[in-house]
Nucleic acid binder design. Structure first.
Lengths: 166, 166
DNA sequence: TATTGTTATACTCTATAACTATA
DNA sequence: TATAGTTATAGAGTATAACAATA
């Protein structure tokens, strides 16, 4: 139940301060949060946590990873990753195996079922992106992405190390 | 102390999944959060909470506001606003007065001292923006802002109702 | 002794619900 | 009875610290 929808008769809609709306940083933060919330909402409606997608995406690309490297890539505390992997493993999307070389390590890999589920979440997020960026035409969307990538590269090189073309 | 800085010798830097880095939504969320964290950090280093800036910006523009309208503009629960205003009032940046028309209401207004402090935070955030968006030249920065405003308008019209020029 | 993954603890944040004073 | 602002309560989320197994 959205209270904003019911309040529109009682008082005029309060606008964000112009000063903030004129700030690209503010818009960036606001839109970024909005996108994340919507992505979370849709993913959860289909039985995924948003982090599930990140984990599956990493495992779907790279070779088999150890928990420490996954946590590192996600900038996530290893202790938080445990519950995520427990859940993914219960649902047969990933497998944990002891590394014979170093029996302290768990080698995590994606299962066939996990790849199918990855395709499902990918489609959900992709659909959302289409809607979210709909106000921009294709050329502008590409220009936006290039600029965001440039900012991300400065902000955290781990994000977009080389401007490699898709 | 950033642990990433100390770990660079032990293992190769883990990169974000390409699939995520290629998503504009992901970059938006990541950059938005990064900007907010940096803004929070700098503001707090100067004795401000980030919300202080929002409140002061609203009061600095509009006429005198009631607590409900401020909370509405910030999409903040009125109960959370109380502590914010308490703090601002203690520091003589805002004043609360009973509305004679309706003694349940508090009319909140910015003080002269508050205007000076507003100028200070504004400068801090403005400086950060300059650094954060430095990878883009002036024309691109403007193009980016226009696109973000278009997205914000779709996402929440309360944010940027008309594309009014600065 | 140090490291990997795991579990337990404690703390912060915030949403919700009660409460008061006015209407 | 309903509303504006305030205070109190409780629950979620998470960072931190302890832990067991292995190196």
């Amino acid at each position: 139940m959205n209270e904003l929808a019911t309040a529109d008769t009682s008082r005029p809609v309060q606008l964000v301060a112009r000063e903030l709306a004129n700030s690209s940083g503010y818009l960036l933060a606001r839109l970024g949060l909005a996108f994340k919330l919507q992505a979370t909402e849709r993913a959860e409606a289909s039985g995924f946590e948003l982090y599930d997608y990140s984990v599956l995406a990493i495992l779907g690309e790279g070779s088999r990873e150890t928990q420490a490297t996954i946590a590192d890539a996600l900038t996530l505390d290893p202790s938080r990753l445990v519950a995520l992997l427990d859940s993914l493993e219960e649902r047969d999307m990933v497998e944990r195996q002891r590394d014979p070389q170093d029996r302290r390590r768990h080698v995590v890999s994606i299962t066939n079922s996990g790849r199918k589920e990855l395709a499902r979440v990918r489609a959900i997020i992709s659909q959302l992106e289409g809607e979210f960026f709909a106000p921009l035409d294709s050329a502008n969307r590409e220009a936006l992405h290039t600029m965001l990538a440039a900012l991300a590269t400065q902000n955290d090189p781990r994000c977009c190390p080389l401007d490699d073309e898709e």
